[in-house]
Amino acid sequence: MPISLKDLENALKNAIPISHLEIIDQSSGCGESYAVLIVSEAFEGKLTLARHRMINELLKNQIAQMHAFSQRTLTPKQYAAELAKGNV
C-alpha cells in the first residue's frame, strides 16, 4: 500500500511534539518518494545524525516501503533563524 502524506503526518505527530511540518511528495503521486521538514523541540540538544536516527526509527515501517526519503530536522529556534535568513 502506498504511503500517504497523512500516514507520515500522523506517525510524526503522534510521536513527538511538532511545531512545524512540511511534507513534500516528490513521487508525483505514487507515494514512493518524500521530502520532509520537521521542526520539533524534541531535537533540542541532539546532533543531526541523532535527529535523523530518531525520525528513521519513528517512520521505520513507512521508509521501508518508499524508494526515497529525505529529511531536514530543525529545532524551533533553528527554524526561526532559517526563516530569517530566507532558507526555508
Binding site: L49, H52, N56, K60, I63, Q71
Partner: peptide, 21 residues
C-alpha cells in the same frame, strides 16, 4: 549502520550519514 537508506558514508570507520546529512 541502522540506517534505512542508501547512500551511506563512513569516515575512518565511523558512520557519518546519508545524503541529507
Amino acid at each position: 549502520s541502522d540506517w534505512p537508506t542508501i547512500p551511506q558514508v563512513y569516515v575512518d570507520g565511523d558512520f557519518v550519514g546519508g545524503c541529507d546529512i
